[in-house]
Nucleic acid binder design. Structure first.
Length: 786
DNA sequence: CGAAATGGCATTTTT
DNA sequence: TGCCATTTCG
């Protein structure tokens, strides 16, 4: 009697402690040991559940399910009081309830992005204080870097290895292709890199790749490039992003004692966004949890949208097969959206076959129907968006609760222009990132090369930037010598007089060597920020920038880079160049910092995952765009598009606006697409507002009037209409015809052979008096009739 | 060597 | 159409 009530009150007291969580969330929180699969639909409080689960593990261990301690009557009385709200003495609760509490450093929580890792860290800290900071919450990549810095010597790299970003990798591929006489025309470096990347994602080494390539010419070539790429990476002591995961798993597979060490360290593994894991990531997680079997994966198969970069939805769908005893928790109560939005998204996603059945619900309001605006063309479409944003703004005085989502980045342009013209503040996500800018990459390359003089790629990038009279052929020679003799390019420069082919360049090489020698020396003595200034001055890079009159934004960027160094120095325990470089390459999140400014957000549906907005516009929901053309043929791709549509709709708290256009100008061509199947799938929850028909009829009336006077005026009309909508610069004002004499600012005088009218430009074929015949767009360079 | 012209290409993106 | 990377020409 007594024992039963102890356990009963213990559980109610603990439920009381986590009473802000719903039953399902509590189930996830209290299942501490063994494999757990949390299927968390959009907006169901997933992160909160994760944070609370970790808090439970650290505070109470497996106290909730433990039967070994039977308590006594005063404990039972306390628990009863706690459960019924007469006390909230947490310390006493923990004393009585805790069983095998888990040390924070035995927990590894893995996410995909720095943003979510940071969010997790922050929430753990605020819930658990300093214990929260001891949980290893990091991305796959940074978790692997940490392991590799300790263990990589086992496979022959130095522990101060350099990390290459995608841009660096691609350059490296190009270099390798050039040196192996593989034409970039025949094999696009991008394609080659992708192939290598996907091989690494599947844990296929160059040797293994070679085995299956004997018969296929393309594979044979790629195999050669892959092998040589990895060799060079090794001699540069560099790893690319994929290597970080690949080599960690390799080490675990080949060195059981190293694996065992980490299995002991990370007794509890938690993986967020599990639906987006690829094979290496799956392997890593599987290996680490093999012994403890304490693995909790959290995700939503309906939000798996990264197949194109290797994500395997099978990982989450197969979890229950992999772990027969897995506890499955479904989070389906949604705290974000109105019932109508949820119904619409459920209606869409239920057309997918490869999924675990889930049904989002809310006890909140019914809300508005999804608003579908059928526009005449893309200009009418943005006009609607602008009007609606203005209307909403008039009501609640806020722009930042609105997002405009599109399928591809190319669509942002015409929306931006119109927003700007209407003075609606906005921010576009995506595009050039801070650390991808040339000047930033250059300076970082200096720092990286000073940090690791074997880094041949960075050497190549900066040795003649600014100009030091060391041209391509000389660099090529240095590289070859360095490779053949297995010495660093610096060594080659130092002793350049020993190498005959370099004899003509001894002076510049010696000068450059002396410079690097000084830089390296200062890197060991100066604090980082002062060292940074020294590099800028000594290398002449700052002067080089200042010499260009348009360089102000660049100089500003450089100053911003400096402030990242200062920031880093402030928070680092032992600031080092190596660690700083690691952070900048791995944590590029910095320029995504959420500004508090009140702006409309423009982004692709992909980058909207995990975010929420009161009002969401989903632009151009038409077949060929959303779903994208390339997914129409293939069932699997189509299901991914549908998941994407599901993600898009579930971003909204209150209002979803979907737009389509009867015709639209995209990639310079006018196209007519039929309505997206996704709209039809959710039609019950959608309200259609057709402006296309009205506008078409209005235009038809105009046209009829005109036709009575002039025949076939439609091209003229078309042009006039384009003039109205498009920027004025694109319009050709002068009319050219065959036989006209013209003056071109560069090519001089000539005679027009033909003039072909395109939609809003004229293609001229001109016989120049001195240069022969050329085809030129009249709208581009200024061509005058004479 | 650097600006200008040409050609090719156009889902989605994090680390 | 518009962007980019590469080529081309002075």
């Amino acid at each position: 009697m007594e024992t039963n009530s102890f356990i009963q009150f213990k559980q109610s007291a603990m439920r009381k402690y986590f009473s802000r969580m719903n039953d399902m969330q509590q189930k996830a929180i209290f299942t501490v040991n063994g494999p757990v699969l949390v299927l968390a639909g959009a907006g169901t409080g997933k992160t909160t559940a994760i944070v609370n689960r970790i808090a439970n593990m650290i505070n109470f261990g497996d106290g909730y399910t433990d039967n070994s301690y039977q308590g006594n009557s005063s404990d039972t009385a306390f628990l009863k009081d706690y459960a019924e709200g007469r006390t909230d003495d947490f310390e006493s609760l923990r004393d009585i309830v805790a069983h095998n509490p888990i040390q924070p450093w035995n927990i590894l929580a893995i996410t995909f992005t720095n943003k979510s890792a940071n969010e997790l860290k922050e929430r753990l800290r605020s819930m658990l204080g300093s214990a929260g900071l001891d949980v290893n919450a990091s991305t796959f990549h940074s978790a692997c870097v940490k392991i590799l810095r300790k263990e990589i010597s086992s496979i022959g790299f130095g522990e101060d290895f350099t990390i290459y970003d995608s841009d660096d990798s691609q350059r490296m591929i190009k270099n390798v292709m050039n040196d192996n006489d593989v034409s970039e025309k025949q094999f696009a470096p991008k394609t080659v890199l992708n192939e290598i990347r996907s091989a690494k994602e599947k844990m296929i080494s160059p040797e293994e790749y070679a085995k299956n390539s004997a018969t296929d010419y393309k594979r044979k070539v790629i195999s050669k490039i892959y092998t040589s790429y990895q060799e060079r990476m090794k001699s540069a002591n560099a790893l690319d992003f994929d290597d970080l995961l690949f080599f960690t798993v390799r080490i675990f597979e080949e060195y059981p004692e190293i694996l065992a060490k980490y299995q002991r360290k990370y007794k509890y593994i938690l993986v967020d966004e599990y639906q987006d894991t690829n094979y290496v990531q799956f392997r890593l997680v599987t290996l680490l949890s093999e012994v403890s079997r304490n693995i909790c994966v959290v995700g939503d198969d309906d939000q798996s949208i990264y197949k194109f970069r290797g994500a395997d939805i099978g990982n989450i769908l197969g979890f229950e097969e992999q772990f027969r005893d897995a506890v499955v928790v479904r989070l389906e109560q949604n705290y974000r959206s109105t019932q109508n939005i949820l119904s619409a998204s459920n209606a869409i996603i239920s057309n997918n076959s490869a999924r675990k059945d889930k049904h989002l619900w809310t006890d909140g309001a019914e809300g508005n129907k999804v608003y579908w605006y059928k526009a005449f063309d893309e200009n009418d479409e943005v006009r609607f968006i602008v009007d609606t944003i203005k209307k909403n703004y008039a009501q609640n005085g806020k722009y930042s609760d609105t997002a405009i989502l599109y399928r591809m980045n190319a669509q942002s342009n015409y929306i931006e222009t119109t927003l700007a013209r209407n003075s609606i503040p906005y921010r576009v996500y995506g595009g050039m990132r801070f650390f991808d800018r040339k000047e930033i990459k250059d300076i970082t390359a200096y720092l990286a090369f000073i940090n690791n003089p074997d880094d041949i790629l960075r050497f190549r990038r900066i040795i003649n930037e600014p100009k030091r009279n060391i041209g391509d052929s000389t660099v090529q020679l240095i590289e070859e010598i360095s490779r053949d003799l297995k010495i660093s390019p610096l060594e080659v420069m130092k002793n350049c007089e020993e190498y005959d082919p370099l004899s003509k360049k001894i002076a510049p090489l010696k000068t450059a060597y002396a410079m690097f020698e000084q830089l390296i020396e200062k890197s060991e003595t100066l604090p980082l920020d002062e060292f940074f200034d020294f590099v800028l001055a000594k290398t002449g890079y700052m002067d080089f920038l200042k010499a260009d009159e348009n360089s102000e934004p660049k100089i500003e960027n450089v100053n911003e880079l400096r402030s990242t160094i200062v920031q880093y120095m402030r928070k680092a325990h032992m600031p080092s160049l190596n660690e700083y470089l690691e952070e900048t390459v791995l944590y590029t999140d910095y320029d995504r910092e959420t500004s508090s400014e009140d702006r409309v957000t423009l982004m692709t549906v992909h980058s909207a995952k995990g975010l929420e907005f009161r009002n969401v516009f989903i632009v151009a929901m038409e077949e060929n765009i959303f779903p994208a053309v390339r997914s129409l043929e293939n069932q699997e791709d189509m299901e991914e598009e549908r998941r994407l549509a599901y993600v898009a709709v579930t971003r909204a708290k209150e209002n979803v606006y979907i737009t389509t256009a009867r015709q639209r100008l995209l990639f310079g061509q006018t196209q007519r697409n039929i309505t997206s199947r996704f709209i039809k799938e959710a039609s019950v929850f959608i309200e259609k507002h057709d402006n296309a028909l009205a506008m078409k009829n209005a235009m038809k009336a105009d046209e009829d009037k005109a036709v009575t006077q002039v025949h076939s005026i439609s091209l003229q009309q078309q042009l006039a209409r384009n003039k109205m909508y498009s920027s004025p610069t694109a319009v050709v004002t002068e009319n050219f015809s065959k036989g006209d004499r013209i003056l071109h600012p560069k090519f001089g005088e000539g005679t027009v052979i033909s003039a072909v009218q395109t939609l809003n430009n004229v293609m001229l074929e001109i016989a120049f008096d001195t240069l022969g015949t050329k085809k030129i767009m009249a709208g581009g360079v200024k061509i005058r009739k004479i």
